[in-house]
């Protein structure tokens, strides 16, 4: 590589930042604002509503929005606003936890696989191939079917399937980093292999995985909501956006659109916010390189 091309390579990304960095950071800010509001609403749910999300009131079923029930009530007289808030709690929590575990496991496995290569890499990558050979939804739904409904089995099913994506992303980056001069410099310096992998390799390869994690939360919300919609996910009466849509569906024809549309909007707005964060984060982290 000539010196000139090295210079353009290094200056390139920085110049890109200065031109459009502000706009890209707006993605991040806007996303953080949306997700921040949604998360706050979920956390402070008990302060934001007077009603329990599961108490039924048969004297007030299928009501429209009013000052007593902000978003109205469903066919069992449950307050819709409460159910949206509390439903967000379980969906967001589960989606986040089901990203954290695969992120950690996949990053560790991918880093070791990429750094060492050899038989460990072959075995890990063949397992990964097997997992990705199945469509994501099909595999997760089958696993939940095997494990049974509930939060624990959704978490397990998503984790088993989605660590693979992180392992592949991190492995590809690790393959590039492991043969750079600074890795050699660490070896010459007598730094141990474990230290090299976890203190030097991982911090240099993890950014792509973190960016992916943001879009993965969106995917997880989709899975959780879908499973619950099909009655395979979160067990009633615990409110969640998917089962709310399923519950509201029969009344859609009768003109009670809100029962289905409002939880759907909650899913869309949250996913939109998370996607914006992922987008903004991708640019911020790319600049740091």
């Amino acid at each position: 590589m000539t010196e000139a091309s090295q210079i353009t390579e290094r200056v390139g990304p920085m110049m890109r930042t200065s031109r459009s960095g502000r706009r890209r950071n707006q993605h991040l800010n806007f996303g953080v604002a949306i997700v921040g509001i949604v998360v706050m609403m979920a956390i402070f749910a008990p302060l934001l509503t007077r009603y329990s999300p599961i108490d039924q009131d048969f004297s007030a079923t299928l009501q429209g929005p009013s000052w007593t029930h902000l978003l109205g009530t469903d066919n069992l007289g449950r307050d819709l606003w409460s159910r949206i808030l509390y439903g967000g709690r379980i969906d967001l929590f589960l989606a986040t936890v089901a990203v954290a575990a695969p992120l950690v496991i996949g990053t560790a496995v991918g880093a070791l696989s990429g750094y060492f290569g050899g038989w460990f890499d072959v075995i890990v990558m063949r397992i990964a191939d097997i997992v990705v050979a199945f469509p994501f939804y099909v595999l997760v739904i089958s696993l939940v079917f095997i494990f049974g409904n509930g939060v624990g089995s959704i978490f397990a099913a998503i984790s088993i399937v989605s660590w693979v994506a992180y392992a592949r992303i991190v492995r590809a980056e690790a393959l590039v980093i492991r043969s750079t001069d600074f890795m050699d410099a660490l070896r010459v310096g007598g730094i141990g292999t474990v230290r090299i992998v976890f203190r030097h390799l991982v911090p240099n390869v993890v950014s792509q995985a973190i960016v992916y994690a943001m879009s993965d939360i969106v995917a997880n919300i989709g899975v959780i909501v879908t499973l619950s919609y099909f009655g395979m996910g979160i067990v009633p009466p615990t409110p969640d956006w998917g089962s709310m849509m399923a519950d509201g569906q029969p009344f859609f024809v009768g003109g009670y659109y809100g029962l289905m549309v409002i939880p759907a909007l909650a899913v869309i707005v949250t996913s939109f916010g998370l996607s914006l964060i992922g987008d903004g984060l991708a640019n911020v982290l790319r600049v740091k390189r």
Partner: peptide, 8 residues
């Protein structure tokens, strides 16, 4: 440019 860990 390549021989120092950029994160440290």
């Amino acid at each position: 440019y390549a021989s120092l860990d950029p994160q440290m």
